[in-house]
Design a protein around this nucleic acid. Structure first.
Lengths: 143, 143
DNA sequence: GCATTAATAGCAAGTAACCTGCAATTAATT
DNA sequence: AATTAATTGCAGGTTACTTGCTATTAATGC
């Protein structure tokens, strides 16, 4: 089993995606890898506040999302939350077709990787590109 | 077939929900009833801007949502969009378990009433209260 | 190692969506 | 018509996020 979270892995990941290996990017990857739930931009800002500029954080997250390194889930306030993507994600095929769970008590966003989004047949004229399925409720810790 | 959109209907709806029949509320109901797609708060503000205060609009929408008169869908920017609910919606049983479609071109949000959200079995400890399924893509008009 | 340069980071300032507190108004009731 | 509790409107504030521009730095060639 490969060691998770070493800087070397993160550097490889950045290289694979034609991104320069910079301190802010590695910091963000480190934080996201260490968390079991998706993390909101404000939370990331609290955690990384002293290390990197807020605007840089926004841009790092945007770049990572475009490259398929992380994916974005909007929580019940409409705030962006980010989680590390599955290995299968790439820039061209962004496969985050699993279900997300947003706890209405602690507000954490969980990736329910074991649940998959079913195929839906669109009405005539409508073309589906991506699907988001978010379940709201109470998580195991709050229950 | 009942006439849709008469003030009298809206007044009945408000009465049914123990809400006073005020001008701002009736105006909002009128606009929402006249639209085929869900409408964002900013759009509602543009439409109703001269008639009612922005804060009142926020509060009317919040009240309506709590009563089950309308439901809220977050579009791809995380902005709240509102659509009139199905008859089956009440304060206690908010049934908006249909699929929403967010066009990435015109940004309109459609309610795909004919598609239903499938039942999902939650992991141990997780309790589901509500489900949101949003499909992103290109709508019939933009295609 | 040093110079080059294109990408990236940081700073200042701004915007959009939404909220809170409080006083003024108004719908429903008597 | 008077009462009162709900609702509205205004002032001002907060949060998430963006844009423009300059400074810095990672990668590359010498």
């Amino acid at each position: 089993m490969e060691e998770m979270g070493s800087d070397h892995n993160f550097e490889q990941l950045l290289e694979k995606n034609d991104l320069k290996k910079t301190k802010p990017r590695i910091s963000v990857l480190k934080v996201l890898a260490s968390r079991k739930t998706a993390t909101s931009q404000p939370d990331l800002e609290d955690i990384l506040g002293k290390e990197i500029d807020r605007v840089t954080l926004y841009r790092v997250l945007k770049t990572f999302e475009e490259k398929g390194i992380i994916h974005k889930i909007l929580d019940l306030n409409g705030t962006a939350n980010y989680a590390a993507c599955d290995e299968s994600c790439t820039e061209h095929e962004h496969d985050d077709k699993h279900v997300h769970f947003n706890c209405t008590s602690c507000l954490n966003v969980y990736c329910l990787d074991e649940l998959h989004v079913p195929n839906l047949s669109m009405p005539k004229g409508f073309t589906a590109a991506n699907v988001t399925l978010i379940v709201y409720g109470i998580c195991d810790k709050c229950n």
